[in-house]
């Protein structure tokens, strides 16, 4: 935007083409700012109403800039609501999901990428199908299954279910990464007498770190975000994850607004920081295949 303030004389001294380019740059900068404003406004609104004194949030018309800072909103949240427990439960479930997903996905992606075997295409089709199946479809049968085995109110079993949902797409992501490892390197390792496991761990995996990061993050995000199955399978409030706990706050009419917003901010901070830290990896790891299209 600072380009708008350029001295008039300097601009007029330039050729017409330069002026048009400068105007284009200004318009672009303005457009970028407007789009950023629109996209980030809900995030800003959540943060604003989490950090300003509660009485300023409940006014009409709403003020667009903070009228004060009230960090004790977060103290209220941590005192009044078991947010720490919720975050711990979410972390526990997400950690299991990441570990189980990696254990399951690494050998499967290797088999899909590097080995020829009968049923390979069938497995690919199956993985695609599970991915596009609407989750709401199978909530009731899952509940029946969990009840039959006494797995309801069991976070470890919920984590395994999350893993089952996220494994198909993680297999695809990692398979694409494995595909990108040059065949000669793998061949050389096998000629040198490595078996498949040694080849996988000492040659293929070190070369596919972005893929492994992407898979872990996808698994973590899925679990951290998941609400539908958690709400059906976890009923004891002592076991609530962040998603479940926050959702109950919506229906508790006595929850002050700033506590709601502070809870939203607290629950979102970890995935946002995570995302920004590995943003480049994600872009590379996730869209590697799409580039070719």
């Amino acid at each position: 935007m600072s380009a708008t303030l350029l001295p008039e004389q300097r601009a007029s001294a330039r050729s017409a083409a330069d002026r048009a380019a400068a105007l284009g740059a200004v318009l672009r900068a303005a457009l970028i700012l407007i789009v950023c404003f629109v996209v980030l406004f809900p995030v800003y609104w959540m943060v604003l109403n989490a950090i300003q004194p509660g009485e300023f949030s409940l006014t009409w018309p709403p003020a667009l800039i903070p009228r004060g800072l009230e960090w004790s909103n977060f103290a209220r949240l941590f005192e009044d609501k078991p947010i720490v427990e919720w975050l711990l439960m979410s972390t526990y479930v997400a950690a299991i999901v990441v570990v189980v997903t990696l254990i399951v996905v690494v050998p499967a992606a290797y088999a899909l990428s590097r080995l020829r075997w009968r049923g390979r295409n069938l497995l690919g089709l199956f993985l695609l199908f599970t991915q596009i199946m609407p989750g709401a479809m199978i909530v009731a049968p899952e509940l029946t299954l969990f009840r039959a085995f006494g797995w309801t109110d069991n976070l470890t079993m919920l984590a395994l279910l999350h893993a089952a949902f996220v494994v198909p797409l993680c297999t695809w992501i990692l398979k694409a990464s494995f595909d990108a490892v040059p065949g000669e390197i793998v061949e050389a390792a096998l000629v040198d007498g490595c078996n498949h496991w040694q080849t996988l761990f000492s040659v293929v995996l070190p070369l596919t770190r972005p893929g492994l990061v992407a898979v872990s993050v996808v698994a973590f995000f899925f679990s951290w975000n998941e609400y539908l199955f958690s709400s059906a399978l976890i009923t004891r409030s002592g076991l609530y994850t962040g998603s479940l706990g926050l959702a109950t706050l919506i229906t508790q009419l006595d929850t002050p607004l700033f506590v709601l917003m502070a809870a939203g901010v607290t629950f979102s901070v970890l995935p946002i920081l995570f995302y920004l830290a590995i943003q480049r990896h994600i872009l590379r790891g996730l869209t590697a295949g799409a580039v070719k299209g």
Binding site: V166, W172, H196, L286, A288, G293
Partner: peptide
Amino acid sequence: SSAATVASAAGPGRRFRWNASGSSA
């Protein structure tokens, strides 16, 4: 969750072939 299906659009990586014994797969 949408990422993987797009990644799969890259198609099978046929750059490398070898006939491993099927059972290990």
